[in-house]
Design a binder for these strands. Sequence first.
DNA 1: CTAAGTGTTCGGAACATTCCGAACAAACTA
DNA 2: TAGTTTGTTCGGAATGTTCCGAACACTTAG
Lengths: 172, 172
Amino acid sequence: MADIEEFVESAGLYFERLGLSRTAGRVMGCLLADTGEAVDAPGLCARLGVAKSSMSVALHQLERSGLVERYRPPRARRDHYRLTEDVFGRAFRAKMTEFAAFAALAEQGLDVVGDRPAARARLEHMRDMYAFMAREFPRLLDRWDAERTDAARRPDGSDTDGPHRLRPPTRL
Amino acid sequence: MADIEEFVESAGLYFERLGLSRTAGRVMGCLLADTGEAVDAPGLCARLGVAKSSMSVALHQLERSGLVERYRPPRARRDHYRLTEDVFGRAFRAKMTEFAAFAALAEQGLDVVGDRPAARARLEHMRDMYAFMAREFPRLLDRWDAERTDAARRPDGSDTDGPHRLRPPTRL
DNA sequence: CTAAGTGTTCGGAACATTCCGAACAAACTA
DNA sequence: TAGTTTGTTCGGAATGTTCCGAACACTTAG
């Protein structure tokens, strides 16, 4: 423990379960804890010991899922990469679309199931529950943002609870 | 479209993205839309065309994740399987543990990262946000249950909105 | 006690995915 | 424009996963 290498590897595992590739997860680990703000592809290749082709697809993956953005510093020859402004908000929003997808799956089931009442009730329950979650989850995000800025306005700790009040609202 | 076979296959894909195996996902599709309440392993094997060994591990997977439960009807020789009482609630709760896991990952990062302020702020943000979600998500489930039973008490449509009021609260 | 039936475990085959190195395309410099 | 650097794409090797069939426990009926 207490080893950065292990953290990067753990991040690889964790983000892999989210549907990314292993190396993409390791890149996330590097961007989160190890490297500074501005990294380039060759640096990440050397850091993780992977070919630049693998790094290319991994970075594309991260870019398309909105977790990482690419930018070109003025007068620079190569692209640089950094975490998106609101990485975790995007990750949560991805979860939300997952909920919507399951609601759609239930809808598809309702289209093909006959009139057996038990199955219909089951699928309607599934559809409504996932739709409810897809609808309410963004509001949870809003609440998080609200409490966060609220804690920033009163950094004396006068708000009630939650660990999120302990820090200023640094826009990571 | 409008084909049960396609729905079962879609369910296989969708639940596969949740970490289950493909056949386990197909079994979920069958239990959701196709088969009746009580199915046995040989029936599912014939229905999906898989070996009974694969079905055994798939059903174990579903049982350990709490989506399916096994029971033995009185005087029956073989086990039967059905969806858990609160399948989707359990699925959501699994998501919640995923949030907690990511909070723990951030904590691990805080243990190994030095005192670079940017990285610390990033990881603290990550930890607090995921902890917030892990904490608040169950309350969303509670709200769902509350509105659902509320809609059941007043099935005249006097509650405001949401598709969940359209059905009686059949405990699937 | 014997035999039939049910469920699990294991080794190997089939399958899909990931990754690397090399070839390719594109952009910038001189 | 020629040459260099950066980034992407592609075929093949390697890795990991899933599935099947067979062998193995365990239970129950007769």
